[in-house]
Design a protein around this nucleic acid. Structure first.
Lengths: 211, 211
DNA sequence: AAGTGTGAATGCGTTCACAGCA
DNA sequence: TGCTGTGAACGCATTCACACTT
């Protein structure tokens, strides 16, 4: 079940999508599913589904398809979702606060264990189960609560120094919402979500394509 | 300046990144820049920068580099950012409200001209310049205000019907935050931002890669 | 000398096509 | 027969290498 080689991000994305659909499908009482049915969902092809899975092993039965339950379990193991992940949120502005209260994270096994800010006027504010704490507590709290991931929702200028601090304190995965490129040590994975950039890609599409 | 063929999304993403940096660089008073300097910023290569630009024309001077100002202007034209885009936000929950107040959009030329929800308790709430309106007003408002884009920040079940309504009302670009796959007519571009999925990719990275 | 612009080579993800098993 | 699993073919994005320009 462990891949021999590096797996493309596009493959990991699709595996997540398959898992989501398998969970729905299982809730509907289905026992078995074919690569074609799985593909139709996410707008891909049956060959793509089989290839994606083949990197990790053989999960199906020829002529029959896949056990919905067993495949979902395997995908959870592959993706590391058989457990709870603890995340902290750095930055309690509009975006940070919205993320702290986002239901979708808990539903997928991500628990927010701390929210931090520099701004004194934001400290103490309750966001679901968390109270906004001062960012000076970051290092102590990371050692105490041992979160695995951090969400960065701070202004662009503040992002890089925080990445350095988080990396030093032992965080190994960061999801960045600040619109700026970041560098991190090799053992820290940083992903960025840039919402204005997504709109710019839509802008390009409106101006250039599909006419 | 118009591309002969289809341009890869990865190229468009990088063009946006180049433009951001060029604007900073220009603000610092620089007149000229080389592909290598531009590349160092976004963590790419000088060859990549030159190739990306080459799809749209020749913007540099051999032996010299690019005029910062002229290249920024060209990129804005290519990306369709020489203008203001009007966007509406559908869904005024935590995420929708945060998006409605996000500074980064206005800074990049995206103006929120309307915010909508179904929930009566949210109607009338002021979010920066906008008041949350009832979703039944959507069609009338689209015809009146002529927004080009919509941000969808509603629960997964509500997303697809809204895509259908928005498409029918004339919206041709949608940025979706609901964690569900969507289908739309060919003349409507839909992009999705799925925050739980981003965390799942980080989960995969922690469990599998970089050890 | 410095740095662009671009055809050619490479590498990689997707699609194809079919052998193999239930 | 039906559908999986996978090597081979394909197509596309990235990288290379160098001719060309200032």
């Amino acid at each position: 079940m462990t891949p021999l080689k590096h797996i493309a991000e596009s493959t990991v994305r699709r595996l997540s999508a398959y898992l989501r659909f398998l969970e729905d499908f299982e809730a509907q009482g289905h026992q078995t599913i074919s690569s074609g049915e799985l593909a139709a969902q996410g707008g891909t092809t049956s060959a793509q589904v089989r290839k994606d899975l083949s990197f990790f092993g053989s999960f199906g039965k020829r002529g029959l398809g896949y056990s919905v339950h067993a495949l979902a379990t395997s995908l959870r193991t592959i993706l590391g979702l058989g457990r709870e992940w603890r995340v902290i949120i750095v930055g309690a502005g509009k975006i940070g606060a919205a993320l702290a209260q986002y239901r979708g994270f808990r539903e997928r096994g991500f628990t927010v264990v701390g929210v931090y800010d520099v701004d004194a006027t934001r400290l103490g504010r309750a966001l679901d189960g968390n109270v906004v704490r001062d960012q000076t507590e970051l290092e102590d709290d990371i050692h105490r609560l041992k979160p695995e991931m951090a969400l960065l929702a701070v202004p662009a200028e503040a992002a890089q120094p925080l990445v350095d601090r988080l990396a030093k304190a032992g965080i190994r995965a960061i999801l960045n919402f600040a619109p700026t490129p970041l560098v991190a040590p090799a053992n820290v994975t940083v992903r960025s979500v840039n919402m204005a950039l997504e709109l710019e890609i839509l802008s390009y599409a409106l101006v250039n394509e599909k006419e």
